[in-house]
Design a protein around this nucleic acid. Structure first.
Lengths: 217, 217
DNA sequence: TATTTGTGGATAGTTCCACTATCCACTCTG
DNA sequence: CAGAGTGGATAGTGGAACTATCCACAAATA
């Protein structure tokens, strides 16, 4: 398949494809002559993945490159690959930090320990969670980490299903890729469902006794 | 308080504060002379909100402006204000769309109807959810909307709590603001918890029988 | 065979965004 | 009264994600 066909079938402009190749996100086609190369379904698949990460996951090109490098490198254990992918999704946290944040960070770490969650100590998610918690406190959300246990239980259950689903895949690359788009795209779907729920509940509480008498269903 | 003090106390540079004022995100101080103005705690609060939306919520300055304009405008019902805020968080969807997406979009709308969720038909979340679902299908996640009902139930419950919490606030601005940072910042916290759960579960499944005696494989 | 169209690779340009820096006439502080 | 700080205006910066142009050449079409 020529580059123009790849462009048409993937919906990505030729210029952008060339750009992705340049940046190392997409492997070059197999060159058959000085100015001729062949692309295949592999490239379409990869382009789909790139677009999903960039446009649904809001990842930067640099992050996508980091993530894809991790996917492609045959890291020893499947879990190491998952972990590496997770960590590539966000920039590592800066060294210096306010004392307030340091305090919340310590609480988050303790909470994770208490839950017996074996996560890498430098997972970006830890810092990002601490930052979010700090802001919530500044805005008087009386919310401590114990309140999150219920949510964590639910997350854990669904994660169990999700990780299991990914591990069923035949080869390691497919498994890691599944985990990746699960994290990013399925995660996005969950966020949007939450927003819809918020709007729906807000509507219901504003017009009481209309759509639903009380309770459920 | 002078602008330099506002800068120090908020951790935002003087230049950035001026920029936010210019862009209409932050009200100007009360001018006491040609080149003198007073700022107060209100400004600190607003700056905190702006930083949270920009750096935790990844909103653009333009989106933040739209959201804050909505917060400040005394829209009639509380729910209308919530809705407007929700819709300001994302750009409206483009007109044209692929047939595949249109199909999924219709399914999503039907699902929302079936759940009796009263959401505005042009809520950006609907489109974003449809886009995410489409990509999940392209990557062979055998996932139809019925599978999401359980998650939607959980979301609904937690939304009930959250909306209730916001509506308890004394004045309308505080209520809308609470809803806003709940959506953005608390939402972010949930995402990070999910990521931690994924990593933890992946670790557990890779070292069976170590942390927990559940013993698969 | 001749001509148009498309190609891969390189390089330069564009647009947008979130700031940042500079300037100025002025005023508050020491 | 000197020097630092101020509000307001305007211009500049650096990064990101493309986009456009150029070239010698190959492929498809006439």
């Amino acid at each position: 398949m020529k580059i123009s066909e790849l462009s048409e079938r993937s919906g990505v402009s030729v210029a952008s494809i060339k750009y992705y190749v340049r940046e190392g996100l997409l492997p070059a086609g197999v060159t058959t002559a000085a100015n001729q190369a062949n692309y295949d379904d592999h490239h379409i698949h990869r382009l789909r993945l790139i677009r999903a990460l960039v446009h649904v996951g809001n990842l930067s090109i640099a992050s996508v490159k980091a993530v894809l490098d991790t996917v492609d490198s045959g890291t020893t254990s499947l879990h190491d690959a998952f972990g590496a992918v997770m960590h590539s999704l966000d920039e590592p946290a800066p060294e210096e930090m306010e004392p307030d944040l340091a305090q919340v960070l310590a609480e988050v770490r303790a909470w994770i320990r208490k839950r017996k969650w074996a996560v890498s100590p430098d997972a970006p998610a830890i810092h990002l969670l601490a930052e979010a918690m700090l802001i919530l406190r500044q805005f008087d959300f009386g919310l401590d980490l114990a309140d999150l246990d219920e949510i964590a239980d639910v997350s854990e259950q669904s994660a169990e299903f999700e990780v299991g689903f990914a591990r069923e895949k035949v080869d390691r690359t497919a498994a890691v890729e599944t985990m990746l788009i699960g994290t990013v795209v399925y995660g996005r779907a969950l966020v949007e469902i939450r927003r819809l729920a918020l709007e729906a509940v807000s509507a219901r509480l504003d017009t009481p006794g209309r759509a639903r008498p009380k309770g459920k269903q």
